[in-house]
Amino acid sequence: MEDLVMAALGGDEAAVDRLLKAGADANHADANGWTALIGAARSDHAALVDRLLGAGAKVNHKDAKGMTALMLAAEGGHVAVADRLLKAGADVNHSDNKGKNALMRAAENRRMEMVDHLLRAGGNVNHADRRGKTALMRAALGGDDAMIRLLVGAKADVNQVDANGWTALICAAAGDVKVVKRLIDAGADVGRSARDGLTALKRATASGHAAIVDTLETAAR
């Protein structure tokens, strides 16, 4: 049965069709918990996703890491596949073993179109993983200004804190001044302290980012 997973992963439509007609279980999972649907979604094979869903594949099946077909499609930015999965009932806010949802996976991989698609499908922009990090915080750590603009526009909470009390602004303070300015403009609390007393200004100072230090000091006046 594992041949079905490999055939789907490789985009071999003829093999998938032949195996299904021969009685292969559309929901068989390999040692990693991958089903053919997860393989097809991961590899951006929309036609196979349709075929497998039609054969009864479970859209919300989780692999060994707690990830679903939608989450794998989100990571890869495969919007057409994600659209099919969502229409088939995929849980847009399912969390994997690390507490991340599809939106966070897409944001981490800078999949702008996918993030927008998931937001429109009801993705929780303020969902936090097991460490309390949100998509906005991850984007701030990565200096992804375009992603931050999109998330802020979707009402991401700029003052939400993670398990250590870090905000998106503290995350951004050792990176790009454009990101820092955008977060401040969106209402970020410049003086907010983490649990250990760290502030955005202290982090920027320790990192030697003079432009960010100046921006934070100006905003605090």
Rank of each mutant, 00 (worst) to 15 (best):
R84M: 05
A40N: 10
T205K: 02
G39N: 08
T68I: 03
A40T: 09
D185V: 05
K178N: 15
L183Y: 01
G23W: 12
A22T: 09
N27Q: 09
V59D: 09
C171L: 03
G165N: 09
I38L: 08
A188P: 02
R192N: 01
V179L: 03
R221N: 15
N159D: 13
A220K: 14
A173L: 02
D91A: 05
A14F: 05
L20Y: 08
H209G: 00
G132V: 02
N60W: 10
A168P: 00
A41M: 03
L118H: 06
M137H: 02
H127K: 09
H127Q: 14
L150W: 08
A140W: 01
W34Q: 06
A200L: 01
L37E: 12
G175M: 03
K98E: 15
M1K: 11
S193G: 05
A41Y: 06
G143N: 11
M67Q: 15
A210K: 00
H94A: 13
A36L: 04
D157G: 00
A69E: 10
M147Q: 11
V79Y: 07
T134W: 00
L141D: 15
R84G: 07
A26T: 10
D145N: 14
S95M: 13
I38P: 04
V49P: 03
D17N: 12
V59S: 06
K155G: 01
D196V: 09
K65D: 15
N27S: 05
L198W: 13
K58V: 11
V180W: 07
G10V: 10
R203A: 02
V92K: 05
G99A: 11
V180D: 10
H61V: 09
M67G: 13
A174I: 02
R111H: 12
A107D: 12
G56A: 05
M137D: 02
T218Y: 14
H78R: 07
R105F: 12
D116C: 02
A154Q: 14
G11E: 09
A140I: 01
K98Y: 14
L183C: 03
A146E: 15
D25Y: 07
V152T: 15
A140L: 01
G11W: 10
L198Q: 14
A64W: 07
V59N: 10
D214C: 00
H94N: 09
M137R: 00
G142M: 05
M137I: 01
A106Q: 11
K133N: 10
R110V: 12
D157F: 00
A200S: 04
D196N: 15
A204E: 02
I38S: 08
D116K: 11
G11N: 10
M137P: 03
A146C: 05
K21Y: 05
K155M: 11
A186Y: 07
I148G: 06
D176W: 05
E108M: 13
L37V: 10
D44M: 04
G33T: 09
D83Q: 09
D185G: 14
A47Q: 14
H117M: 11
V190D: 02
N27T: 09
Q160S: 03
A154F: 13
G165E: 05
L151P: 08
V179T: 15
R182T: 14
L151K: 13
D63R: 09
E113Y: 02
V180G: 01
V213Q: 00
L103E: 12
A8M: 04
G39K: 04
K202N: 04
L103D: 13
A219H: 12
V115W: 08
A188D: 04
K202H: 08
N93Q: 05
G23K: 06
A26F: 08
D17L: 06
M112D: 15
G99R: 14
H78P: 03
G76N: 07
